[in-house]
Design a binder for these strands. Structure first.
Length: 265
DNA sequence: CCGAACGTTAGG
DNA sequence: CCTAACGTTCGG
């Protein structure tokens, strides 16, 4: 009577399933961490700087993409099925697009001067390829690039870009910017416009760490499971907590001090 | 506002 | 090519 007490047991079949599912191993695909796109960015940037040895058109050309790059504000359909990978593609990446926009804004404001120095082209980013790793490394890796004379991005802009791509804030985003100014408004408007947000439409990935992500096997009973054929959705109990939140397209976080750019003060 | 359906992307 | 699943749209 008392020794085999089942501790009130799972109060519902759902909990039973949950317990069973939780004991299952993590899926292989989730164990593989999402590659840090910034490392790719750095590598690509090096390659770009070689290819576009004629300096200024490198960035300028990218800032004014071809018609194919400019996704029309049409609702749907006309979009090419798959964006083929190319060098220019990195500017269409979640972070890259913002980078391009940010750079253009700076150019318009006269803050960005495209004056590459021989040092920029000759100096390989050895440190970048060697020190890449976790997201923290990405930040430090990126600093040499920021420091180069033709791309005077400040940390604020960097965080601004990262917010759009989300690769810096994926862990819960403890840092962000609010009230940057007109520039941000422009960026926000373009990147989050429904249907037309190229970078914003890129799929996010499951964090692989939250409880739902760690589950394997579908419940086969929730609406998502039942409508798998038409719904194309993952089981409700496996839906990543991060993905449940709305994609971070804006920059809503504020520093505790309330300052938009603490580092500028 | 919520859920279903659909389009699309991404990995195998 | 196939499957899984995210993002967006639409209807209730």
């Amino acid at each position: 009577m008392s020794d085999t007490l089942d501790m009130s047991g799972p109060s519902s079949p759902e909990q039973q399933r949950a317990n069973r599912i939780l004991s299952e191993p993590l899926r292989r695909s989730l164990k593989r961490s999402h590659p840090c796109s910034l490392s790719e960015y750095l590598n690509n940037t090096n390659r770009l700087s070689h290819r576009h040895s004629s300096s200024s058109i490198g960035v300028r050309g990218l800032l004014h993409p071809t018609a194919a790059q400019h996704r029309p504000t049409q609702p749907r359909q006309t979009k090419p099925r798959r964006a083929h990978s190319s060098n220019i593609d990195l500017w269409d990446s979640p972070s890259g697009l913002h980078l391009a926009h940010a750079a253009e804004l700076l150019m318009r404001a006269g803050a960005l001067t495209l004056t590459p120095t021989p040092r920029d082209q000759g100096e390989e980013m050895e440190g970048g390829s060697g020190a890449e790793g976790d997201s923290t490394g990405c930040v430090t890796d990126f600093l040499p690039l920021l420091g180069c004379s033709w791309f005077p991005l400040n940390p604020g802009l960097f965080a601004l870009m990262a917010g759009g791509g989300g690769f810096l804030t994926s862990g819960g985003g403890s840092m962000g910017i609010a009230g940057i100014g007109e520039g941000v408004e422009v960026l926000r408007g373009e990147s989050s416009s429904p249907g037309g947000g190229g970078a914003g439409r890129r799929k996010r990935k499951r964090c692989g760490e939250c409880v739902p992500c760690r589950r394997t096997g579908n419940c086969e009973e929730c609406s998502a499971c039942r409508n798998r054929k038409t719904g194309h959705q993952i089981c409700k109990y496996r839906k990543c907590e991060q993905l449940k939140k709305k994609a971070a397209t804006g920059f809503e976080m504020v520093f505790p001090s309330g300052a938009a750019f603490p580092w500028l003060q």
